[in-house]
């Protein structure tokens, strides 16, 4: 089997499993909904004049970061419980292929969850405000952010899989390492949603930086994954 064949098989395995159990998607979706409920309470005492639009980019990304952590914690736990990971490691498959397929499936699940929760966020909080006409551009920061989160997150969730208190440990490593990416994505998201004058400069530069982060950190994670999974 060539690389693509292996990659496709592994990816299909993840997708099929998720399609049958819907374990990750449902838990991530419900968690995201609960975060939105907490937002509702958190913002309930703010004045009507509050410019929610300026905060919305940050709120969306806080939602995504917390939700993705939940999913990443689950993504390898399942393999571990059923002894699937050992089976994969026994098969003559390049280790980096495992990383790529796992990162892809994590990214896909995250994108599906975003597809549901971002419109929900708009429904709950952005009803009374007019978005800038450039708002559809939010797709690109969401895409780049999800790719980076899935890539670095896959490596980190593999690391924390074998540790004590793994849920907390993932958060401890995940949030600081992802900080630059989130920073850039928030800038791009807010920029295109508010659409103030000259936002295109901020938007494009943030996207460029997020893309740079993705390329560097993904190649690094990809290169280091062999060590981690074989340890």
């Amino acid at each position: 089997m060539g690389f693509f064949e292996q990659y496709r098989v592994l990816l299909r395995k993840d997708l099929t499993r998720e399609f049958r159990s819907k374990e990750m998607l449902s838990s991530m979706g419900i968690y995201a909904l609960l975060v939105l409920v907490v937002y509702g309470a958190a913002l309930s005492q703010t004045s009507k004049g509050l410019d929610i639009l300026q905060m919305s980019g940050g709120l969306i990304w806080a939602l995504i970061v917390f939700t993705s952590m939940l999913g990443l914690n689950r993504s390898f736990a399942f393999e571990k419980e059923q002894g699937c990971l050992e089976g994969i490691l026994l098969a003559p498959i390049d280790r980096s292929t495992i990383f790529l397929s796992k990162a892809t499936s994590n990214c896909l699940f995250l994108l599906v969850v975003e597809l549901i929760t971002v419109p929900l966020f708009a429904f709950f909080f952005l009803g009374g405000v007019t978005l800038a006409p450039s708002w559809p551009l939010i797709v690109f920061p969401l895409l780049l952010g999800s790719i980076g989160i899935a890539g670095v997150g896959t490596l980190l969730s593999t690391i924390t899989l074998e540790t004590r208190g793994k849920d907390v440990l993932l958060a401890v490593l995940f949030v600081p390492l992802l900080f630059p990416l989130v920073y850039a994505c928030v800038a791009a998201t807010t920029g295109c949603m508010v659409g103030s004058e000259g936002f295109m400069t901020t938007y494009l530069r943030s996207l460029l930086l997020a893309g740079g982060y993705d390329i560097i950190m993904l190649s690094l994670s990809w290169a280091l994954y062999d060590f981690v999974i074989s340890a």
Partner: peptide, 10 residues
């Protein structure tokens, strides 16, 4: 990267 991004994002 963190330094670059926090510095360069306007």
């Amino acid at each position: 990267i963190c330094f670059m991004i926090t510095r360069l994002v306007p």
